[in-house]
């Protein structure tokens, strides 16, 4: 038995008593700017964690660099504040080494989609069982306001005084295209939805990806205002529910159907609800269509779980393969390794 397994032998599988939100608050002062959307995300996470019924010591938060990446310092669990872009890789290594842990990643649009883009797409492809929350504020906050890979075209930022000429990533499409098995979105100002999505992510095995629209009130204030302002919210947010038709709007009078492969707005009052798309989390092609709504003018942006299919997690396959080899070859023995195969004796 290796030393880690032996050390963990006596650790309880479940918390002795149910945690409260404050049990997940660390003793560190939270240092985000007042009014930052990160506060809400932290609060929702700390609200959900007690419900997961996972011992606090089994949770690890891993991050890279950026405003969002300060997250691990504020959660009373284990944590690694890594280097820029590498959270997914650090977390992957930890999860492979320790499948018994619940490993979470807090990253941002710069950390995750730019410098760390390579790790993100590969973790999706492999389906390592880590939970990734990507705080998307469409700006570099910590370095003071340069455009990010999700900034919109034409955006004026510190490094694009005449407007951004980069075309942005759609994180959900990137995740789906890379083979992610769980893809969801929420918004910092939608606490209920955010909690629900985090709960779903926690329950899913394999990689989970949650894009969270997050307002940077200093460098990119109001980037998602149409989705968060009371007056415009209902017409711009489409809440996804598995098995339910895509209906939104103030009086639930708007819907979406397909015309060929193209989504089309439907005025339910005038046209009725025939042919509305019914959400199916297991439909990969539908997930692509829903993810694509974000870049179609006049369309609402979906929040909730776009796609969730169950497939074996990478670390389980890794352990499974080791067990198989052990069964067929027997547990490794050093003497056999060193003295096996082609050897010869020299005797005096």
């Amino acid at each position: 038995m290796n030393l880690v397994v032996e050390t963990m032998n006596n650790a309880p599988a479940q918390p002795a008593q149910k945690y409260a939100q404050k049990d997940f608050q660390s003793d560190q002062d939270v240092r985000w700017c007042p009014g930052c959307g990160d506060y809400s995300i932290l609060a929702q996470v700390q609200r959900v964690l007690p419900d997961l019924n996972i011992p606090r010591e089994k949770l690890v938060w891993v991050s890279g660099i950026g405003c969002s990446s300060r997250f691990p310092y504020y959660v009373q669990t284990y944590g690694i504040h890594g280097i820029h872009g590498r959270a997914a890789a650090i977390a992957s290594g930890l999860k492979m080494a320790r499948p018994d842990l619940s490993v979470w990643v807090a990253t941002g649009d710069g950390d995750g989609m730019s410098i760390g883009g390579n790790h993100l797409i590969h973790v999706f492809r492999r389906n390592v069982g880590i939970k990734i929350l990507l705080f998307n504020n469409q700006i570099y906050g910590l370095t003071k306001g340069q455009f990010s890979p999700t900034s919109v075209e034409g955006q004026i930022t510190a490094s694009t005084p005449y407007g951004n000429i980069d075309h942005p990533f759609n994180p959900l499409l990137l995740a789906l295209g890379s083979g992610a098995g769980f893809v969801a979105r929420s918004v910092d100002r939608e606490p209920k939805n955010l909690q629900e999505v985090i709960r779903r992510a926690a329950a899913h095995r394999g990689t989970t990806f949650v894009e969270i629209y997050q307002n940077c009130n200093v460098f990119n204030d109001g980037a998602f205002s149409t989705m968060t302002d009371k007056e415009t919210h209902d017409d711009n947010v489409l809440v996804l529910e598995h098995g339910k038709p895509l209906i939104f709007g103030k009086d639930k009078k708007k819907g979406i159907r397909l015309n060929g492969f193209t989504p089309q707005l439907v005025d339910i009052g005038a046209d009725g609800d025939a042919g509305l798309i019914v959400h199916n989390e297991k439909d990969h092609m539908l997930a692509f269509i829903l993810a694509g709504l974000s870049s179609m003018p006049g369309m609402p942006r979906p929040i909730g779980v776009l796609y969730a299919v169950d497939r074996p997690a990478y670390e389980s396959d890794m352990v499974g393969q080791i067990e198989k080899v052990k069964q067929s070859r027997g547990e490794g023995e050093l003497a056999k390794l060193l003295q096996g195969g082609e050897t010869w004796q020299i005797e005096w």
């Binding site: 050390t7 690890v60 650090i90 992957s92 290594g93 080494a97 080791i322 547990e331 390794l337």
Partner: peptide
């Protein structure tokens, strides 16, 4: 030599190779 419980991870790049190892080291 997986029967020694060795975990080998062919990473996507050199940086993931070392950072995954750092994660594993944190895990023991």
């Amino acid at each position: 030599h997986k029967h020694f419980g060795v975990k080998t991870f062919q990473a996507e790049d050199e940086i993931a190779a070392i950072t995954s190892a750092i994660g594993a080291s944190y895990g023991g």
